[in-house]
Design a protein around this nucleic acid. Structure first.
Length: 666
DNA sequence: AATCCTGGAGTTTTT
DNA sequence: CTCCAGGATT
């Protein structure tokens, strides 16, 4: 929808590509859209077209308007873990340690931000001492971020909103730059994102959004599907077009999807249909355990590939949560099925990646205390807690960052000579590297940095085996390659880059007429690190290598994508719907998640269920998902259900047996 | 300051 | 089963 409309705007309405922006929610969806636009627009100029995530658009705005926001350009982006660590620190001062208090606070603060509520705005609203403390924490959290010259993910939306709201000149600049805005998956927008949309569109109404309230799966992130309805009130002359013909799936798959989602309430009613014929029955496979489940999936991929003459990349395995992919990976490796795993925080959660990212962050933003603390004694520099405490006190007094405090004159008197010297050495080393970066030798400086600290040696020292150390170093190299690629002048690596290259050229002329917003992306180290922090660059790189590979991803990550053959793994109670959602009484969103998964399939769909699986090291009995019974029986082919009778009934029986057993012990 | 040990806690989903 | 924080030991 969006890509066709972009083509129409350019080819029929005479819009220049650099006046059009399309935003999505995930990097993957943005890349997919870019690709489709590219092939649709062959011949027409697509240079300067903006297709990116909401967060990336926000980043662009902050980047360009850093001055107006009072930020230095090297600012760091704190990810979830960073901000959690910061909150933990701030809470620790209060010597308060409820187990999940940090999570609660993080959630609350994020909710406030997503609703565009500043600390000042919520200060009077606290209804309990606990809430009051969170408000106070929020204030100090914001303060800390500012002093670290850092922003968190939510800020990438809220800061542009604040700026565009308060600064007319800036607002006009961006309204002039983006003359037509398109938003995909509109049901997933939250309050701050909707505000951003309103501010960019202004009252000209040059806006197209596509949304499906049945695919709203981000409510935990503040998404508000009511925003779809709100549009009718906010934009006069809004035209609503209902799209019910589906061009992707067979009718069996659509029937299953329709029947399932009928169990939910709807904002808009719709019935999907397609001209693709009835299609294959949906396979429901029950096996004894999680091992057999992955075995079955792997075998099916191999078998069907032969039978149907399909490619590996035609197969996708969708999971509810990331950890489910681990076993599957092992099995696919064993069976020599090439696969590609999308997303997951796993890569950035690795210690070695956090270390090197820490170094990179300090390199581009010395004020990033969080990054500094991570790397100051890794590898060991004999800079320990006592030294850091003194440094911390001093930096607080001087109202500067830890790194800046190293260079302050009075520090020497506060600590033993040896400790002071070690700090100086570290500071000087970093400054030298920074100079190399500034002089245009960024990549050399980065490689030198990793060599200087002998990170390989450190890994060998701290890994259980040389094999593990080598694996970790490989990850580091992967990261460094990504940085190198990001730094490369545009146009040299891939086909998709070539368009960027011409884009940049075409834009130079555009800069003049569009005031000073350039679309050309700098390839500075700063820029590259930010892209890394937005999880974009790495995905991009690994996707480039993903030629003919089976795809593994979460249901969330699969939205907006399509595959000829889809497996949904773990179609069980407590997995889908997830146990936490059952507890929170949030079944509807889980149902939508299943709906999203089912509607990814073009030709075949297979649901797998294990009778038992190991969790936390102990065997658990599993029962089929309640959603199974909400699918049309005539479209399902059940496989491996004992005595061919209803698996759900079996599961109920099993549960009853289990309950009665429990009763014996009680 | 670094290393080893123990116990406890934890697995939704993304930028 | 795995990852962590915190404590005790070297």
């Amino acid at each position: 929808m969006i890509t066709r409309k972009i083509a129409y705007l350019i080819q029929a309405c005479g819009y220049r590509a650099h006046h059009i922006a399309a935003v999505t929610f995930t990097n993957k969806a943005a890349r997919e859209m870019k690709q489709r636009v590219g092939s649709l627009l062959q011949g027409s100029p697509s240079r300067g077209l903006t297709v990116c995530t909401f967060h990336h658009l926000g980043l662009k705005i902050i980047q360009r308007e850093a001055q107006a926001l009072g930020r230095k350009s090297g600012f760091s982006i704190f990810d979830d873990q960073d901000s959690k660590a910061l909150l933990k620190d701030l809470l620790l001062d209060h010597s308060d340690a409820a187990a999940n208090l940090v999570d609660i606070c993080q959630q609350q603060i994020s909710n406030w931000k997503n609703s565009c509520l500043s600390p000042a705005a919520v200060v009077g609203t606290a209804e309990s001492p606990q809430e009051e403390r969170i408000v106070e924490l929020y204030r100090r959290y914001e303060q800390a971020l500012t002093s670290y010259n850092a922003v968190d993910f939510d800020d990438l939306i809220t800061l542009p909103v604040q700026l565009l709201e308060s600064n007319e000149q800036v607002r006009e600049r961006w309204q002039n730059k983006i003359r037509y805005l398109l938003v995909d998956e509109y049901q997933d927008t939250n309050t701050s994102q909707y505000r951003l949309v309103q501010l960019i569109v202004g009252n000209r109404g040059k806006l197209t959004v596509v949304g499906d309230d049945d695919q709203s799966i981000y409510s935990w992130r503040g998404a508000n599907p009511e925003n779809l309805v709100q549009l009718e009130a906010d934009f006069m002359g809004l035209k609503v077009v209902k799209l019910e013909q589906n061009y992707r799936s067979t009718n069996r798959i659509l029937r299953a999807a329709n029947t399932l989602i009928d169990n939910n309430p709807h904002i808009y009613d719709k019935k999907l249909w397609s001209e693709k014929g009835l299609g294959d029955t949906i396979q429901v496979v029950q096996v004894s355990n999680e091992e057999a489940e992955t075995e079955r999936i792997a075998n099916q991929i191999i078998e069907q590939k032969l039978q149907r003459g399909a490619r590996f990349k035609d197969f996708a395995v969708l999971v509810r949560s990331n950890h489910q992919s681990r076993l599957l990976e092992l099995k696919l490796q064993a069976k020599q099925v090439p696969y590609h795993l999308t997303g997951g925080t796993s890569f950035f959660a690795r210690g070695e990646i956090k270390d090197i990212m820490g170094y990179l962050r300090v390199l581009v933003n010395p004020d990033d205390d969080s990054a500094f603390l991570r790397i100051v004694n890794v590898p060991r520099r004999k800079i320990g807690i006592s030294t850091l405490e003194t440094l911390g006190q001093y930096s607080t007094e001087r109202n500067c960052s830890l790194f800046a405090a190293i260079g302050e004159l009075g520090l020497q008197q506060r600590m033993p000579e040896a400790n002071y010297t070690r700090l100086q050495k570290l500071g000087d080393w970093f400054k030298a590297l920074q100079r190399r970066v500034d002089n245009g030798y960024a990549m050399q400086a980065v490689r030198e940095m990793v060599d200087d600290i002998d990170y390989l040696g450190w890994l060998h020292q701290n890994s259980s085996s040389t094999a593990v150390a080598e694996r970790r170093m490989e990850n580091v190299h992967f990261l460094l390659t990504s940085v190198a690629k990001g730094l490369l002048p545009k146009g040299s690596s891939t086909a998709s880059r070539e368009t960027d290259d011409e884009e940049a050229l075409a834009d130079r002329s555009a800069i003049v007429e569009d005031e000073d917003i350039e679309d050309e992306e700098q390839s500075s180290l700063e820029e590259v690190i930010k892209k890394l922090l937005l999880r974009d660059l790495l995905d991009q790189q690994s996707e480039e290598q993903a030629d003919d590979k089976a795809q593994i991803m979460t249901l969330h990550a699969s939205k907006g994508l399509e595959f000829p053959h889809v497996f949904i793994m773990g179609f069980e109670e407590d997995t889908l719907p997830h146990r936490n959602s059952v507890e929170d009484d949030n079944i509807e969103e889980e149902r939508r998640l299943a709906y999203v998964g089912i509607t990814r399939a073009q030709q075949t769909l297979t649901l797998t269920i294990a009778r038992q699986r190991k969790q936390f090291g102990e065997m658990l009995q599993c029962q089929p998902s309640r959603f199974l019974e909400e699918l049309p029986a005539e479209d399902l082919h059940r496989n491996g259900f004992s005595d061919g009778d209803d698996g759900a009934a079996n599961a109920v029986k099993a549960k009853q047996t289990l309950d009665s057993l429990k009763g014996l012990f009680d």
